[in-house]
């Protein structure tokens, strides 16, 4: 097992390097095509040439290769790798550091990622909890009674959620639930503010750090919830007819034990791996959800970095997301081995 983990960790290296290079190349070509991004910082004003030159040089944007369209700027890439190796992810155009681990403990070392990450972690936990509890529960109930009304409603509603893009769903929920319904709630005197302005507020609010993340969390988790419910349903349904379930019945075990122990344990193997993988999916979902609900998390920062063409921020955040994704994948593999002894002993 230990050797397996080490091998997997080593496999991370090319993936991370490849991602870094791709991002580096895309942002470099972007600069080569649109010109010095610093200029955009000044908007309509024209900066003094010395100021511009000084800024450009401080942000390492004065390398001649940035003027040659299509040049991959390998020299710059190597410098960047060396910096990242020393946990230096650079700064944005306003010289705010992208990442400084001390920022988790000390406000004096605040950085973009350490400031944003707690929001994303909170919203991910909300999404994951809802996905795991609700998705598995309704999938299980539907799978146990195929062809009954609950089964059909699960089938239909999950197809709807899966086929509607997340941003459409998010905007619909924002319009009709947090705005229209929220406005109605805010008009009622007797409803506490935590509910009317927190839970049903149309954007994240600092005064309600948890309540105002619930609906964004639900939107983030909705898609994975639907896939989890469907997967659980299919899996339970298949396992109910498995030979070993018939054996369990023949052993005179109670219906509760036949379902709760023998059927469920087997049905949940594919579900657990799906749950693990959905954590990776949340990282992309967060870009949309956090932007819609204005949550100042990592996803929101990513979107901003893209719009403003900030290479360091984009690369820093994406590297982190890739690592989260890879670690989640590794954990899923380990979990699979724990749940399914047939894998463990291969």
């Amino acid at each position: 097992m230990g050797r397996y983990i080490v091998r997997r960790l080593l496999q991370f290296i090319p993936t991370v390097l490849g991602t870094l290079f791709l991002l580096h190349y895309l942002t470099t070509v972007g600069i080569q095509l649109t010109g010095n991004p610093i200029r955009a910082l000044f908007g309509d004003k024209r900066p003094a040439p010395e100021t511009l030159a000084a800024l450009t040089s401080r942000l390492h944007l004065d390398d001649p290769c940035l003027k040659q369209k299509g040049n991959p700027c390998l020299g710059l890439f190597r410098e960047r790798l060396v910096d990242i190796g020393q946990l230096d992810f650079g700064t944005n155009f306003r010289f705010r550091p992208v990442f400084d681990w001390r920022g988790f403990f000390d406000r004096a070392h605040a950085s973009i990622i350490t400031d944003a990450l707690p929001y994303t972690i909170k919203i991910t936990i909300i999404a994951f909890t809802i996905e795991a509890l609700v998705g598995v529960f309704i999938g299980m109930r539907a799978g146990m009674k195929p062809g009954k009304s609950l089964d059909y409603s699960v089938k239909i509603s999950t197809v709807m959620v899966i086929s509607v893009p997340v941003f459409v769903l998010g905007i619909l929920i924002q319009q009709f639930i947090t705005r229209d319904f929220g406005n109605f709630l805010r008009g009622q005197e007797w409803i506490p503010e935590v509910i009317s302005r927190g839970v049903f507020g149309s954007a994240y609010k600092q005064e309600f750090p948890f309540a105002s993340l619930i609906i964004p969390g639900i939107v983030l988790g909705m898609l994975s919830l639907a896939t989890t419910a469907r997967l659980t349903r299919t899996s339970v349904h298949e396992n109910m007819r498995a030979d070993y379930v018939r054996t369990a019945k023949a052993k005179g075990l109670t219906h509760k034990r036949v379902i709760g122990v023998h059927t469920l344990r087997n049905s949940l193997i594919p579900v657990a791996t799906n749950l693990g993988l959905s954590i990776g999916g949340y990282m992309t979902g967060a870009i949309i959800t956090e932007t819609i609900f204005n949550v100042p998390g990592v996803g929101n920062q990513t979107a901003r970095a893209i719009f403003q063409g900030e290479p360091a921020v984009l690369i820093g955040i994406t590297t982190m997301l890739v690592l989260v994704y890879l670690v989640a994948n590794l954990l899923v593999d380990l979990l699979y081995a724990v749940l399914d002894p047939r894998i463990r002993y291969e």
């Binding site: 498995a242 030979d243 070993y244 054996t247 344990r265 087997n266 399914d340 002894p341 047939r342």
Partner: peptide, 10 residues
């Protein structure tokens, strides 16, 4: 078929 009749995870 004892392979499928026994529960694989216990």
């Amino acid at each position: 078929d004892a392979l499928s009749a026994l529960n694989p995870v216990f």
